Each structure stands twice: as C-alpha cells, then as structure tokens.
Amino acid sequence: TSSHKLRLYERDDYRGLMSELTDDCACVPELFRLPEIYSLHVLEGCWVLYEMPNYRGRQYLLRPGDYRRYHDWGGADAKVGSLRRVTDL
C-alpha cells in the first residue's frame, strides 16, 4: 500500500498553526478549525485538493513538494474545502 502525508499551514511560508493529514478529509475547515490554508507541504503520495467541502468545486492535483503560497498549487484563493488521496494514477 502507498502512504500519504501532507501538512497544512494557516499562513504562507509554513507559518502559523500546522496540521498533518494522512487520510481523506471531506471538510478541512471543520476538522482543523482553519477557515483558510495558505501553504502546504506534501511529504508522501499525491493528493487532490478541492476548493469546497465534500470533494466539490475546483480540483488541484498536488504532487510531493512545497506549496509556499496558494497560487503555487494554482488556487485563486486560500480556500481548501476537502482533500482526497490519489490511490490510482
């Protein structure tokens, strides 16, 4: 099985509160109590970021690497509604 891990930060450049995720999350704002995510670091696996909860809205593919600001993943703003692991490519 492949492993997945990413870290979410409330501010750009990996500042502020950090939360780690290793499984799908249908509602990021509810789980982490963060209305917006300004940076993230994908440590393992690929993920799909959705701008709205319950895997809706615009989708962004996140490969392992650094995303210091939301425009690094192509986002128009810092809204992160849900995240899902990519298990098949």
Rank of each mutant, 00 (worst) to 15 (best):
G75Y: 02
N54K: 08
D23H: 08
S39H: 05
K5D: 00
C25M: 07
D13Y: 10
A76R: 12
L61N: 12
L40N: 01
R68A: 07
R7S: 02
T1I: 15
H41P: 02
G45Q: 03
Y67C: 04
S39L: 03
Y38K: 09
R84W: 05
D72H: 13
V42H: 02
L21A: 01
S82F: 04
E36N: 13
E10H: 07
Y50G: 01
I37K: 15
T1P: 00
H71Q: 13
V28R: 01
D72R: 08
S2Q: 08
A78V: 05
V28H: 00
T87Y: 13
L49H: 03
S3A: 09
Y70S: 08
P29I: 08
A26S: 12
G74N: 09
D77N: 12
P53T: 08
Y60G: 05
D72A: 07
L40C: 11
D88G: 10
I37A: 12
E51G: 03
R69V: 11
E30D: 11
P29V: 11
R7P: 02
D72V: 07
L89A: 15
C46W: 02
D66Q: 10
L49P: 01
L8R: 01
E36L: 08
Q59C: 08
S82W: 01
L8I: 12
L62R: 00
D88F: 02
L43P: 00
Y38N: 09
R56M: 12
V48G: 03
L43H: 01
G81Y: 01
E20T: 10
D24I: 10
D23C: 10
M18T: 08
P35T: 14
D13M: 10
V80M: 05
L43M: 15
V48R: 10
E44L: 06
H41T: 06
L83G: 03
Q59R: 11
V42R: 00
V42K: 00
L40F: 07
D24H: 01
T22F: 05
G16H: 02
R11K: 15
T1A: 08
G75A: 15
Y50M: 01
G81T: 01
P53E: 09
S82G: 02
N54D: 11
L34A: 15
T1G: 09
G16E: 06
G81A: 04
P35Q: 11
G74R: 05
L21G: 06
Y70C: 10
K5P: 00
R56W: 02
V48H: 10
E20I: 03
V28D: 02
R11A: 14
A78F: 08
S19E: 13
E10V: 04
R63Y: 14
R85T: 07
Y60S: 07
T22Q: 14
L89Y: 13
R68W: 07
M52G: 10
E44T: 10
G75C: 03
L31V: 13
Y67S: 00
D23G: 10
M18H: 11
I37Q: 15
Y67Q: 08
Y9M: 00
V80G: 03
L61P: 12
P53I: 02
T22Y: 12
S82Q: 00
Y60D: 04
A78K: 10
G45K: 02
S39N: 00
S39Y: 09
R56K: 15
Y14P: 05
C27F: 03
V42E: 05
P64N: 00
L34N: 15
Y70D: 01
E36C: 12
A76G: 10
V28N: 06
R58H: 15
P35K: 15
V28Y: 02
D12I: 13
L21F: 05
Y14M: 06
R15I: 04
D12Q: 12
W47Y: 00
D66V: 06
L62F: 01
A76Y: 12
A78T: 06
R84G: 04
H71Y: 09
L89D: 15
P53A: 10
M52V: 08
T22S: 09
D77H: 15
L6P: 03
S3Q: 07
Y50W: 03
S2E: 10
W47C: 00
H41R: 13
D24G: 02
R58M: 08
R84C: 04
Y38P: 15
G81E: 04
L34V: 10
L21C: 05
L61H: 14
G57N: 00
L21I: 12
R68P: 13
G74E: 05
P64E: 01
A78L: 04
G45D: 05
D77Y: 07
D72G: 06
R63F: 15
G16Q: 03
R33D: 13
W73D: 06
D88T: 06
Y38D: 02
S19Y: 10
P35S: 13
V42I: 06
Y70P: 15
E10T: 07
V42Q: 03
R33G: 10
E10M: 04
D88M: 07
